[in-house]
Design a protein around this nucleic acid. Structure first.
Lengths: 355, 355
DNA sequence: CACAATATGCTCAGATTGAGCATAACGCCT
DNA sequence: AGGCGTTATGCTCAATCTGAGCATATTGTG
């Protein structure tokens, strides 16, 4: 497979495919990651820092795009993910194409520009085949500020807000200061205005403010490349960054954040949840999955009403005795609604407190 | 610049950037096209057919991605579009990455796979600098069934529906027949269910049914490549395809359709219209632009109410005497709303009759 | 000066949405 | 058996939003 990544002249490009494979178990959204970099695309290990950002960051599944084997980009992605993981990808959607300079730091050493087409894929969680390199990881462990299911995450007020306020204050001039203030207001503004879909904006803000370990890592790499002494970040910033979730290799956490936002947006107007569920499910199970993805709790009775009114599901006639409490009826997704209706989806509003 | 497109071994890839540059003059949405293919990427001219699909199809602006000059994909696109056209791109957004086999037919002759990252860019229409190859073209001339501003376009009932009904009837088996029926229902179903955002689905359906001249062209090319005698389409199909708007080179009409859908979707929740307007405008002018993009007429008084309630604009105090009728007050966009509000946009519903 | 054309303001009924109350059906405990 | 906690499910109600129309204001034109 390495014949695709063979060019080493500067000015050359390489195309890869990155997958954000999502599943939901019970109430936990998970993403498929690999412990080691596929094709050894990891940042050069930097011994002694003791930081996962440097030592062994997790990566999203990545593979080369091979035009001789792959009729389309999407088929290429499907093929190698399904081959390597044994998963059955139920829904695949192109997310975004990333091609910034030095997104693979080996470009600094004359390596090619690695352009990566990122895909979002939905599946049911199942045991993983293959070499055991891949594993499911809860995706809010990478983006902890995105999980509002038990109310506003404390980390926003204890870590993010103070650090961002400090970042605003140290702006070099008034103009930058105003810009920073505006970005912070948009991304982490009032309780009411927290827009669950803008997860990418929030990650990028944290990265800009040096509050993602990846930002610190990249600054380090760039300094080294220019022969400058690496300037260590202020200890508070480093501590804050450490408290803000696990880092990933390269720009993979950015890709994850964009997948989260896209998926949340899709929930509103396309029935994507059903690709994460077994054929039969209770309405509450459905609700839990929606909450897991959207990151917020919804009003149970109204959720029911919306789903029923949309005629997205039909009762199977079966009853699921789950343990304590009244047993629930099970439902199945009506694949044919796509034909009749158009705006089929489950709309949500801003986060609410409690449940 | 050609050093990027130099590889001719099969199995190689090339990355390009394609731009859908949009402007609105008065009430006509327009798109920037080039008469000839940039870098001679046109389909091989096929003399004697007398069809624009074969002879000189228009193309979207296309340029190579040059990693040595371009820090990011978006900057690369901005740079060469602005350099070549002299336009000031006000808003740029990545659309989709296209990488299907034979999307550049020269791949059949051992050429590289051309992967193209498509961008949507908004600007104000202005005279074009440069060689005069580029020009503004009304974009509904490529997708005439998308313009519902004077009610349901007649072409849907006179051309599309009959042709699609015929396509359903000639399905090789019941399963295909059902699938085709479903797709037709989703894309060109009832009046009420016409979802303006799904323009890509509709183009792809027409392409599948052979009702886009590009589909006929591609079938022709593929037949030739396999040494088969080109099978001419039934005359009714060809006539229908000719009646369904102008074709474009390669898959460029598909890219245009996806841009239209994306832009329509964005209208709802981001204030993108203002990037197509001068700094001061009347509310009716704003309405005309929204209608031009969304393809449907809106209720004047309610549109006003929505815009005012969202506090998207503020009065300038000026009055525009446009000719007959009461002169209108002019407004300007409040850039700062982005900071306060989140769901800023102009939401629309399904198409309605009259105006 | 009537009238056509456009801008702008207001009303109102029907649909949608957010939130809570009430009842039903189970397991578990005493 | 009966009370209790727990979950499922059904219903109500007020606040808001939305679609559609009526009314009035301000201009140019015949």
């Amino acid at each position: 497979m390495d014949h695709v990544i063979r060019s080493n002249q500067p000015g050359h490009t390489t195309i890869g495919l990155t997958a954000v494979v999502v599943a939901v178990t019970e109430e936990d959204p998970r993403v498929l990651v690999a412990r080691r970099m596929t094709h050894d695309l990891a940042t050069p290990a930097q011994a002694g820092t003791g930081d996962r950002a440097f030592d062994s960051p997790e990566t999203l599944p990545f593979g080369p795009f091979e035009p001789t084997h792959h009729r389309t980009l999407e088929l290429g992605l499907r093929q190698w993910v399904e081959d390597q993981s044994g998963l059955d990808l139920r829904y695949v959607e192109q997310l975004y194409t990333f091609g910034s300079q030095y997104r693979d730091p080996r470009e600094l050493a004359g390596g090619p520009r690695v352009v990566s087409v990122a895909y979002l894929a939905l599946t049911q969680e199942s045991p993983l085949a293959g070499s055991g390199e891949a594993q499911w990881r809860p995706w809010y462990s990478y983006l902890p500020w995105e999980d509002w299911r038990s109310g506003r995450p404390p980390v926003i007020d204890t870590v993010i807000r103070p650090a961002l306020t400090h970042w605003i204050d140290e702006a070099p001039n008034l103009r930058t200061r105003h810009e920073r203030k505006e970005r912070v207001a948009i991304c982490f503004g009032s309780e009411a205005g927290f827009d669950m879909v803008r997860s990418l904006d929030r990650y990028e803000l944290l990265y800009s403010a040096g509050l993602a370990l990846e930002a610190i890592r990249d600054a380090h790499i760039m300094a080294q490349a220019h022969g400058l002494p690496p300037e260590p970040p202020p200890p508070e910033t480093l501590a804050a960054a450490r408290a803000l979730g696990d880092p990933m290799a390269l720009d993979n956490r950015r890709i994850l954040a964009s997948a989260l936002g896209r998926l949340r947006g899709k929930l509103d107007y396309r029935p994507v949840v059903f690709d994460l569920l077994p054929p039969e499910f209770t309405l509450f199970r459905l609700q839990r999955v929606v909450e897991a993805l959207s990151g917020i709790d919804v009003h149970k009775q109204n959720f029911r009403r919306t789903v029923m009114a949309a005629e997205l599901v039909e009762p199977t006639g079966h009853i699921e005795a789950s343990g304590r409490g009244r047993p629930a009826e099970t439902y199945r997704f009506r694949r044919d609604v796509m034909q009749e209706k158009h705006d089929v989806g489950i709309s949500l509003s801003a986060p609410r407190l409690g449940g």
